[in-house]
C-alpha cells in the first residue's frame, strides 16, 4: 500500500469535519467537528514526517495538540457562559450581528 493513502484519509476526515461545522447547530458538536479537523491535520503531518524521514512533522503535530487543548478549554468555557446567559447551546442563537 502506498502511505499516500493516509493523506487521502486525512483530507476526507478534514472535509467531513468542515461540513459538520457548517451543518450542525449545537455548539458542542461544532466544536467536536473542529477537533476532528485538527486531528485530520495531525494525521497528515505525521504522514509527512514519515515521508520526509525526520521528526519535524511530529513536532508540529505535537504543538497542534497543545494548542487544541488550550482551545478546548477556552471554547468550552465560552459555550458554558453562553449557555448560562441564553439557556441555549445553539450557534444560531448567537446571531446579534445581523442587520
Amino acid at each position: 500500500m502506498n502511505p499516500v493513502n493516509y493523506l487521502y484519509l486525512a483530507a476526507l476526515l478534514f472535509t467531513i469535519g468542515a461540513a459538520g461545522v457548517l451543518i450542525r447547530r449545537n455548539a458542542i458538536v461544532v466544536f467536536m467537528c473542529i477537533e476532528l479537523m485538527l486531528n485530520a491535520c495531525n494525521l497528515a503531518l505525521i504522514t509527512f514526517s514519515r515521508m520526509h524521514g525526520n521528526l519535524d512533522g511530529q513536532i508540529v503535530a505535537f504543538f497542534t495538540m497543545v494548542v487544541a487543548a488550550a482551545e478546548v478549554v477556552v471554547g468550552l468555557a465560552i459555550i458554558v457562559s453562553f449557555y448560562r446567559s441564553r439557556h441555549s447551546a445553539s450557534v444560531d442563537d448567537a446571531a446579534l450581528m445581523k442587520l
Binding site: 493516509y6 486531528n39 495531525n42 494525521l43 505525521i46 504522514t47 503535530a61 487544541a68 487543548a69 468550552l76
Partner: peptide, 26 residues
C-alpha cells in the same frame, strides 16, 4: 494510525490527551 506511522509518542499522547482529557471535558 500514528503508531503505525512511527509516531509512538504522539500515538500515546493522542489517547491520553484527546480521548482521555479532551473528550472527558466535552
Amino acid at each position: 494510525f500514528y503508531l503505525a506511522n512511527g509516531a509512538y509518542f504522539l500515538g500515546v499522547v493522542q489517547i491520553v490527551v484527546y480521548t482521555g482529557a479532551v473528550m472527558m471535558l466535552f
